[in-house]
Design a protein around this nucleic acid. Sequence first.
DNA 1: CCGATGTGCAACCATCGAGTTGCTGGCAAG
DNA 2: CTTGCCAGCAACTCGATGGTTGCACATCGG
Lengths: 118, 118
Amino acid sequence: MTDERQGSVGVVDSVLVALADNTRRELLQLLAAQGEATATTLAESLPISRQAVAKHLAVLDAAGLVSGSRVGREVRYAVKPATLDATARWMTMLAADWDRRLAKIKHIAEAAERRDTP
Amino acid sequence: MTDERQGSVGVVDSVLVALADNTRRELLQLLAAQGEATATTLAESLPISRQAVAKHLAVLDAAGLVSGSRVGREVRYAVKPATLDATARWMTMLAADWDRRLAKIKHIAEAAERRDTP
DNA sequence: CCGATGTGCAACCATCGAGTTGCTGGCAAG
DNA sequence: CTTGCCAGCAACTCGATGGTTGCACATCGG
């Protein structure tokens, strides 16, 4: 199993790195809108070359956010919601964890205050 | 106001960029664990210099993930769960959107298949 | 078979970002 | 007042990354 401890490396890292780029997010949006598309098609909707798009798709594929399947001489890419969803879950969990800790610390601080100024 | 459309720039961008770095995530973890800490303190728990930590904290602050408050000659930083939570929500919504579109497209494809092979 | 179209690979360039060192300025404790 | 932390620039190095061009390879259509 992949351990997957909070802030360490892993699947989450690659997803976040992939999502950190605006062009890649636009690419995902286009893919989600069209269902399936090739690198060349996508490049026509963006101000960058086909090769640049291909590289981005490789990154997204490595992160598990998209997957490509060869059909004849072209490669159709499609979005994979599961990975994004998993990352969203991880984030929600993390935020909840922070909240828990903050609440606990605040509680301790208040207790100390009550003790100092009775 | 900041518009804040789906895949375009904005708050989400800065948060994702901030989270894309592993050192920054470790920093957040440390902060969440300790409640409050200064740049120098945090630097002692990491293999990098105080200045590097300060830069990272600046990025996290700009993204709204932490906030620092001056106490005497030192600056105490603390985690801000709200922003992370908002981003997590955004992601969940996005994943759901992808799922919706995928389902619709699949439906269309099946309909076409039924029509082609009656 | 031959041309057109789409991918993949490699080299190359420019910029960005993480990290460093070095110095200055403020605040506090002696 | 002086000494010692702590924070805040500023300049610099260097590897990662987004982007480009050029070419070779496969596949479809005539």
